[in-house]
Design a protein around this nucleic acid. Sequence first.
DNA 1: GTGAAAGCGCTAACAT
DNA 2: ATGTTAGCGCTTTCAC
Lengths: 321, 321
Amino acid sequence: MAVTIKDLARETGLTAATISAYFNGANVRPYNKEKIERAIDRLGYVRNDYARGLRTHRSMTIGVLIPELSNLFSTTIVSEMEEDLRKKGYGIIVCDCRSDAAREKESVRFLMSKMADGLIVIPVSSDGSAFTELAASGTPVVAIDRITDSKNISHIVINNREASKEAVASMINEGCKSIAIVCGETDVYTAAERFAGYAEAMEEAGLGEKIVAEVGHFSIDGGYRATKKLIGENPDTDGLFVTNYEMTVGAIIALKELGKEVGGDIAIMGFDNVEILKAVYPGIKTVSQPISEIGRTAAETLLAAIEGAPVSDKVLKAKMD
Amino acid sequence: MAVTIKDLARETGLTAATISAYFNGANVRPYNKEKIERAIDRLGYVRNDYARGLRTHRSMTIGVLIPELSNLFSTTIVSEMEEDLRKKGYGIIVCDCRSDAAREKESVRFLMSKMADGLIVIPVSSDGSAFTELAASGTPVVAIDRITDSKNISHIVINNREASKEAVASMINEGCKSIAIVCGETDVYTAAERFAGYAEAMEEAGLGEKIVAEVGHFSIDGGYRATKKLIGENPDTDGLFVTNYEMTVGAIIALKELGKEVGGDIAIMGFDNVEILKAVYPGIKTVSQPISEIGRTAAETLLAAIEGAPVSDKVLKAKMD
DNA sequence: GTGAAAGCGCTAACAT
DNA sequence: ATGTTAGCGCTTTCAC
């Protein structure tokens, strides 16, 4: 059995209440303080968060709920948040709902049972129904990457539409005449916004014909298939806007197989981290999201909400590079 | 305040003990069972794991401690384990110790305070000192990827040495005469083993001169710098064995900049997931670790240990492709 | 500044 | 099958 506060009490001749006071920053006689610290060392005491949490109704853990943990964007954010939250004494319980709304709901209950003090979420259900109940009951929720309809939760997103519009406009500027987009299904917020930006840029340039492939899974494979199909049906496409990292990788594989030279026959505008691709194909451009900043902002916003701050939405800016 | 078992008791006219019995699978009169279930629905009851854990000394959470959460190998494993463990009712608390031994130790205490029922760890400290104390006290620990000196913890690793030896032998077989290795610092277990396999293959083939670059950070940048230096000093190197994924990416960027044609001027043997690279450079070969299997095995081993199984080490096999 | 006592929400004997 | 009682390890009044 683990060492408890009672053991410290026995060891020091003090009472549990005093030891607790010591831990919680109350004034303790220097002499006793030293005794307590010696006892902690000797006995190897570690405070039991479960007992503490039960008493205080604060678990000091944050639930993190992600559609796909195998995705670079998600894990980078998780990594950032883990660091920030740990600094404030919080641990994170990570759940992967595999882009499934039912699993998302189930995960919320799971995190409730863990008494999570708050949730940071990339929402799957666009109505946010999985969270509103929770948020209404007083546990703050911060959604990142995607907007939901819920007024009870805070949202941290980027300016998907503007950034995409600008990106496509720059492709047009570089001389592309026939630009296709590979994007996710437009019932996902980010996909819809990025598509809208693409469409706006095309229309403003008077390039009427939009070439679109919607991809169910935002994966390498999804991007690969979509690109194959797209180029098969529209062989004179000279520009490709691919709206996430994994799909960009897939698109490049497909183009390679089709014998198209990236940057020559066809220009690519990708999304996020493509360090290796850029090295291999210097011509490639991407829209980069401020991933670390998103994570940091989410952590900050949630902690503020836990301290009582009201719901607040934030839009961060992506940049082209 | 959240709904408690007492609320259910009041609502149903039963007592807390009966409700608890219901949750724990004891026999409850069908009539009462139904009443309980109705009450749960109406009140939105979620069982409080903290109270339960405090009482049972089982938190139903597993601590996961990783040196770098931003690394593909790690996150793939975390993703696999999260799924497996969730199926068994366990949540995971993820900690990133940034390859720092002090943070590793601190994280262990943190996870102890969270009453983790067990730990799955990619160890940083090779003596395993951060864990032995914990393991000795009854909390099982499973180390993956790297061996430690501790006899109290289970280890899941791959056959790094044999797989590396085989890989380098195959390069020699393909006609490479001057093969260099880019590996991590050899005080890390995997780096040492992979180097040993390289050395054995070289010696058996009578290729005396070993060309070695040790890299502090197993990162894209680390691989990039090491390769630049290596090729600068040994321009007629015709084979490169790079011992993890990120460094392989870095190496390829470097070769590209040096004007070396991958698969032509120089053969590359990488490690793990290089789907995109293979598409771009069909000649590239890699040693792939059974990443999902590692995660699955780690989860299984830990759960078995929690149920009382003794310490057990396992060696899984990597394959070349 | 420290102690005594009560209680967070749950489970585990034990009794009925 | 259900109720009674006690207690997990901690914090929090309230005395002193």
